[in-house]
């Protein structure tokens, strides 16, 4: 699993990469009340805003961590945004992206580096 400085996690699953936000991010956000997911089939470029996540405190953007195509989104999250607080690392993934350049993953931190990053 890899981690971005935007507090996303990336897990490779066959030829797609599953993306969610970390425990740390979910804790910092507080209770999540609204999620807007991207459209399936959408072509995205790295660092493009693809999701909106709003907590009781504020709105945040989720960026596409890689170039590629959004092949699947976790639609049930829209009706149960609180799952992002309950299980951010597994059940509350946001979208799956089919990367055009899997090597872009190399830029991201491993778990040890991320732990150090968040202090």
């Amino acid at each position: 699993m890899k981690f971005t400085e935007e507090h996303e996690w990336l897990r490779v699953e066959g030829d797609v990469v599953v993306v969610g936000i970390t425990d740390h991010a979910s804790e910092q956000l507080g209770d999540v009340v609204f999620i807007e997911l991207p459209e399936e089939g959408m072509e995205v470029t790295k660092d493009e805003e693809v999701c909106v996540i709003e907590s009781v405190k504020a709105a945040s953007d989720i960026l596409a961590p890689l170039d590629g195509e959004i092949v699947e989104v976790n639609s049930p999250l829209v009706d149960e945004p609180g799952k992002v607080n309950d299980d951010p690392m597994v059940e509350a993934w946001f979208f799956k992206i089919k990367p055009s350049e899997l090597s872009q993953m190399d830029d991201y931190m491993d778990e040890a580096a991320y732990k150090k990053f968040i202090g």
Partner: peptide
């Protein structure tokens, strides 16, 4: 700003 329960609870 909040305690352990969090804003919603």
């Amino acid at each position: 700003v909040q305690y352990a329960l969090g804003v919603m609870k």
